[in-house]
């Protein structure tokens, strides 16, 4: 069975008017960049894939993950990770608690702990487990958010302008890190961005969304 994320004839409508249409398959280890002007509905597409589409929209078409139709599944059963432009670390949890929140149930306390420590080590944040996320730098928080997402063991990854809040230098660094990890894990990735740099460095196919509501 092929590892892939496919969007089959996906079409999102608002008030009966189509906003976006996508028909594409993202294979494992590949990064599909979805570009387009702001307001075209890029984030709406991601909301459809994660199962969080607002009821004012209507979505049609299927989302397939590794060949299984997940269109009807609730968000928490879809196994699709997502990173936003903000790190969205839960402010009431320590770094370690944030990571533990993402790890699937099971395993002993010690096992879960060592998973967390190793994962933090991998991104150069050893010993950060007890820290308050609010005391971390922007780059550190972005790495924690990445690790949290990876520890939940997703089968695909969505990036919603994930790098746009970081300054230029940090941005290239975090971007490289993310793309390297997803290649290692062989995950299909769908990235929406308005930045051509992001799309180029992803090295995958690029599709442009066009606005249907042109006057």
């Amino acid at each position: 069975m092929n590892k892939s994320l496919s969007l089959r004839n996906v079409c999102i409508l608002r008030d009966g008017i189509p906003l976006i249409e996508v028909d594409h398959e993202v294979s494992a280890g590949e990064v599909l960049s979805v570009m387009g002007p702001s307001g075209v509905g890029k984030s709406t597409l991601l909301a459809y894939i994660t199962g969080n589409l607002h009821p004012v929209f209507k979505g049609m078409g299927e989302v397939l993950l590794n060949g299984n139709d997940i269109t009807g599944l609730p968000p928490h059963k879809r196994e699709i990770g997502i990173l936003f432009q903000d790190d969205l670390l839960f402010p009431h949890m320590s770094v370690g608690e944030n990571l533990a929140f993402g790890i699937p149930r099971g395993g002993s306390r010690a096992e879960r702990r060592s998973k967390i420590e190793n994962a933090l080590c991998d991104v150069g944040l050893d010993g950060f487990s007890d820290r308050d996320p609010a005391t971390l730098s922007g780059g550190q928080r972005a790495r924690v958010a990445l690790v949290r997402m990876l520890l939940s063991d997703p089968k695909a990854l969505l990036l919603d302008e994930a790098f746009s809040r970081l300054d230029a230098e940090l941005r290239a660094h975090v971007r490289e890190l993310v793309f390297r990890v997803v290649k290692e894990r062989n995950l299909p990735v769908l990235m929406v961005t308005h930045d051509l740099e992001d799309a180029k460095s992803a090295g995958g196919p690029i599709i442009e969304l066009e606005s249907y509501t042109k006057k």
């Binding site: 909301a47 199962g51 609730p74 928490h76 059963k77 929140f101 997402m149």
Partner: peptide, 23 residues
């Protein structure tokens, strides 16, 4: 409240009630 928190928690495998109580 930023509902993207709920999206993230859901993507991490948390049920809607889990999001309600824990986040």
């Amino acid at each position: 409240w930023d509902t993207r928190n709920a999206t993230v928690a859901g993507a991490l495998g948390t049920t809607p009630w889990g999001v309600f109580w824990r986040v």
